[in-house]
């Protein structure tokens, strides 16, 4: 089974269908891959300025909105100066 169990209590990056990127600590999940994140922030990417982090706190994401869940290497993630990153936002999913 491609389970999410290994991600609980780990810092993760969620990519959503609309292209949003959200980081947070996975507090829990269920059978439909609905996910609860604690201490979460949206990372807003643009070519004009560095990455903006918008605090979201405790956040529930519906499973059908999720594209991808990635486990963050916290050391690598903290070493990145987000203010220097310029990138297009991730495109939304189109079926």
């Amino acid at each position: 089974m491609a389970s999410l169990q290994g991600y609980v209590d780990h810092r993760v990056l969620l990519i959503l269908q609309d292209g949003r990127a959200i980081v947070g600590v996975m507090a829990g999940f269920d059978q439909k891959s609905n996910v609860v994140l604690s201490d979460s922030k949206e990372r807003v990417y643009s070519m004009e300025e560095g990455v903006e982090e918008i605090p979201l706190g405790l956040y529930l994401v519906k499973g059908d909105q999720i594209v991808l869940i990635g486990e963050l290497d916290e050391a690598v993630d903290q070493a990145v100066d987000l203010s220097t990153i310029r990138a297009e936002p991730i495109p939304p999913i189109h079926y």
């Binding site: 990056l13 269908q17 990372r43 059908d64 991808l68 486990e71 991730i90």
Partner: peptide, 16 residues
């Protein structure tokens, strides 16, 4: 696509 620089492993939803 620097968004996933610090991601080591991931779970991808089949539908996408």
């Amino acid at each position: 696509h620097p968004h996933m620089m610090a991601v080591k492993n991931c779970f991808i939803r089949g539908s996408v």
